[in-house]
Design a protein around this nucleic acid. Structure first.
Length: 414
DNA sequence: TCTGGGGTCCTAGGACCC
DNA sequence: TCTGGGGTCCTAGGACCC
């Protein structure tokens, strides 16, 4: 049986662990640049604050109802996630970390399953301070449905027999099924399929003809046929994106270049940490999407020989910015995407490239850079191209401390 | 003034081959 | 009157997830 363990309002819960005064109070966590709401405590939900709500629109309500707003603190959430996953790994050798706040476990079907689930919930709370909900089912998709019910009830819900499943699916809108998004659900509704049970009973070839195998898999999963399986090994990324909205609009090409260089440097650190080389770099720039004539443009460069040498990518990125830049526009965002990865251990070299000696030096330079940054933290070594003042950096109005990952920011109790 | 960021998978269609 | 059949590879875009 699959168990889906999902942390309740994870980011808010992380903040509450280190600030117990927030208990029972409306709390929200905002996206980068304090843009929109990405996590809400039940109290905040009860005030009618929707997911994704732009913070500026809700500022009066926040003030009126004393809603506590946090800027996102991914250093903290990432580390808390690591702790939760560590606890979960004690309960089963078969585990998949599905997202920052969710994991699937496989446990043998036994009468004690609910007791074990209770134990998991209790242990995670005691060891990390994070409350979780657990859904149990024969497939991942059914465990997801069960998890939604768990969240509405006492935190644990299991599907054991078919009749019980169908009773739930009968009233479950198709759009709430994992894997059925807004587009497919509106198509299904237009065809008269409004609830999960109807979809479960739909004809296979009809689904395949009008939709795709992805949806067909969904349907099979609802029928209790395991199609997705557990992905225990997290496979290396196939692409790495680094992009951020600016704290305030950027108008100078120089600033765009700095930002792009800085993102390239960060993306390449990630690339090297997974032992890959990238063969392509895409750079994109955009203005706000919410103006009358938004501008978006991108450029992709491919390399004859895959690489992980940051200066090479910075050079290309700056060149791209030069091409993409249009004077007089208010830029809101720049991003870089590394793609077409190959393993460092085995790749096709370029027959016409210059001497291999410089290649070795490139590798050594990046190693020294990464090691020093690892030892001293906070990216102590950076490239000049990244700029010094970085005035384009994003806004963070109210960020909690990095309680668990930074010696200078430990929680002080007096 | 103010609206996040990072992924994966699949399909259709174009371009090309014999 | 009348113009085959069977492939592969690549890319852009759509759809979904958290």
């Amino acid at each position: 049986m699959y168990l889906l363990i999902d942390c309740n309002q994870f980011f808010v819960s992380c903040e509450r662990v280190f600030n117990p005064k927030l208990k029972d109070k409306p709390v929200v966590v905002l996206s980068n640049n304090d843009g929109c709401v990405i996590a809400r405590s039940p109290e905040a939900k009860a005030l009618g604050i929707p997911m994704g709500a732009p913070a500026y629109q809700y500022a009066p309500l926040f003030k009126e109802k004393n809603v506590v707003c946090f800027s996102s603190n991914f250093a903290l959430y990432g580390d808390m996630s690591r702790r939760v996953m560590e606890v979960l790994s004690h309960f089963s050798p078969s585990m998949e970390e599905y997202s920052i706040d969710e994991a699937f476990l496989i446990l043998e079907d036994c009468p004690d399953l609910l007791v074990i689930a209770g134990k998991i919930k209790e242990t995670v709370l005691q060891w990390t301070g994070i409350p979780v909900s657990i859904g149990i089912g024969k497939t991942k998709t059914l465990a997801k449905v069960a998890n939604d019910l768990a969240k509405k009830g006492n935190g644990i819900f299991a599907f054991f027999d078919e009749k019980e499943i169908d009773k739930v699916l009968e009233h479950l809108p198709v759009g709430e099924i994992w894997g059925i998004g807004p587009n497919i659900s509106s198509f299904l509704r237009s065809e008269g399929i409004r609830f999960a049970l109807q979809l479960k009973k739909a004809q296979d070839d009809w689904i395949k003809r009008h939709l795709s195998v992805i949806t067909l898999r969904c349907v099979f999963e609802l029928r209790g046929i395991d199609c997705l399986g557990l992905e225990e090994e997290s496979s290396p990324r196939q692409s790495i994106t680094y992009s951020r909205s600016f704290g305030s609009a950027v108008v100078k090409e120089e600033d765009l270049g700095e930002a792009a260089s800085s993102y390239v440097a960060k993306a390449l650190e990630k690339l090297r940490s997974q032992n890959s080389l990238a063969s392509s770099l895409c750079v994109f720039v955009m203005t706000s999407r919410h103006i009358s004539k938004p501008y978006y443009n991108h450029m992709t460069m491919t390399f004859a020989e895959p690489s992980d040498y940051t200066p090479l990518f910075i050079k290309e990125a700056k060149q791209a910015i030069k091409t993409l830049f249009r004077p007089g526009l208010m830029y809101k965002k720049v991003g870089v995407i590394l793609g077409d990865f190959v393993s460092k251990d085995c790749y096709q070299a370029d027959f016409f490239s210059s001497s291999s000696l410089s290649k070795e030096k490139q590798v050594q330079t990046m190693q020294v850079l990464d090691e020093l940054n690892h030892i001293y933290g906070d990216r102590i070594l950076r490239f000049a191209a990244e700029g010094l003042d970085q005035s384009w950096k994003m806004k963070k109005g109210n960020c909690s401390k990095r309680f668990t990952t930074c010696w200078d920011e430990l929680l002080i109790i007096s």
